[in-house]
Every structure is written in C-alpha cells, then in structure tokens.
Amino acid sequence: MATLILAEHDDAHLNEATAKTLTAALALGQPVDVLVAGQNAKAVADAAAQLTGVRSVLLADGESLANRRAEPLADLIVSLAGQYDAIVVPGTSTGKNVAPRVAALLDVMQISEITKVVSPDTFERPIYAGNAIETVQSSDKTRVITVRIAAFPAAAAGGNAPVETIAAPGDSGLSSFVGADLSVSDRPELASAKVIVSGGRALGSAEKFQEVIAPLADQLKAAIGASRAAVDSGYAPNDWQVGQTGKVVAPDLYIAIGISGAIQHLAGMKDSKVIVAINKDGDAPIFQVADYGLVDDLFTVVPALTKALAN
C-alpha cells in the first residue's frame, strides 16, 4: 500500500520538520503522500509537492483546520487511513497532539518518536529520557508513528508531485481556538538551527540572559535555547526549552552556558555534533558530554568569546 505523512506548517510556510519526516517515511519502502491540512494553505501544498520522493500531496483546506485542533484534524486523518498502512507524523507539538488520537480511533498502538527505521514494522525509539534505546515491533494493521525530527536528515527539494484537493472535515464544536501568543524572531528556528547557544539558571535574570546570550547568538547566526531552570525562572520563553520535555535538537554546534547538564537537559541535546560547555564548576555533568569545555565565569568568558569571533 502506501504511507501518509502529515505536513508541519503554519498555513504560510512548510516547516522543515516535514522534509525530515519524509525521510523517515521513505525508509518504510512504500509510496508517500503528504497531507497538508490548514486554511489558505495552498502555498504550503505547492512547497510540499517539490520534496523529492513525494507521490502526491493532499490539500484539505478549510476553517475547521485553521489552527490544527486535534479533533477535526484526527477525524480527517482517520477518514483517509483506509488507503494507507502507515501514518507518519512529525514529533512536533501539533504531531504529538494529534497522532495518538488517530491511533486510538484506529485501535492501534502508536510508536512514539522513532529515531530509526529498522524494517517496515520495526523501529528504534528512546525511552527514559534517552538513557535507553528500545527496538519495537508492531503487530498492528496500520502503523501510526511519530518521528524524532532531530534524528533524520531533511529530504531534498527537486520533486514535482501533483496536488489534489480534498474536502476539509466538519467541526464537531467540541473545542474552539481562543488565541495564541507566539514568539516572533528573526533567528533560525531552534529545531532546525545549525548552531544553538543555550543558557541556564546561571544567567540570573531575563536581562542578563539577553545581554550575554543574544550577542553571541547574533555573531554565530544561532538559535537560542534554554534549560528548564532558565525558562521556569522567566529568563527565557517556554518554546526555547531544550530537553526531555522540551525540544530535542541536534545542531552542528551546541554551546551550553551556565547549564549543569541534568539528564533531562542532556536528553535534548546530546546528539549534537559538537558540544561546548561553559561552566565555572569543573565537575558539572555537562562536561561529560562536551567536546570542548571552558571552566570559568560565563560573565567574562562569553563576552570575550563573542568579541574573539567578531575579529
């Protein structure tokens, strides 16, 4: 049969998580269709059609799908499920929200956050905050899978798949969208950034966080991340949190500043290519995963590093 993937987007732009999910889906060895569910999302469907390896794009466009609420979105996916033996969804907040709803409606057990496709019914996935890797085999007729985005490279552009319009589902009225408070930033997105500069509790205030972290991030054209302690203390917004329960990232370069390296934080960044730790405590666990460490006061070292890079 075939595989259906759910596109990640905001109605205007196709998110790179889609191309990464596509790579995982193609490893199942079947033709892959992409579902774009949204409102006024034609541009997104056209962008999805250009990903190499896509058989066709299904565009469901309507009011009920505007904010990708779980109830109408799950109904839509379930209505298509008969034509697919695998439904592969990005492990984004939208994907994690809707996929288990789909799985339960299909009476199948979801396989969460896969990091590797071993065979079409067998996958690797991290458990215990990434401290163990489980290989699981599914016996369900339809496999519903979410993908750990950081674990797969993005599929290339260069395709030209047809876009087919399908009906948007009705709205049961069980839920409604009240509003959103989304961060706007010119920086690269955390999930797909090549370089991430991350700050912890040691920054001490939102002002210091900005004053110390932002110039280094500017210099490196980096995204900014944070530990849970920094987010909880209000130094950084929630969508910057890296870790077991925040975002999982794997950039080329991750610079951890004033972060101790709790297992829950490591779970979100230990697959980065190169890790740098700046911490005044030489015994901090972050140094056990860091390629390069500076044992020093961040308030002197980070401005010095920013300056050295500018030269």
């Binding site: 199948v108 163990a132 860091a290 890079l309």
Partner: peptide, 27 residues
C-alpha cells in the same frame, strides 16, 4: 500488548572531551 520489545540497549555514549584554557584555544 500490540508492540513487542525486541531489545533494549544503552545509547552510544559520548566521551568527555578536553577542557581548554582560553577563549582563543576554543575558537
């Protein structure tokens, strides 16, 4: 259950790297 766990392994670990003395060495 619907899933069978075939095996559970430790992730391939990272080894601690080097601690450097100065910002210039790091760069």
């Amino acid at each position: 259950p619907r899933l069978t766990v075939l095996k559970t392994v430790e992730p391939t670990g990272r080894t601690a790297g080097v601690k450097l003395g100065t910002v210039d060495e790091l760069v």
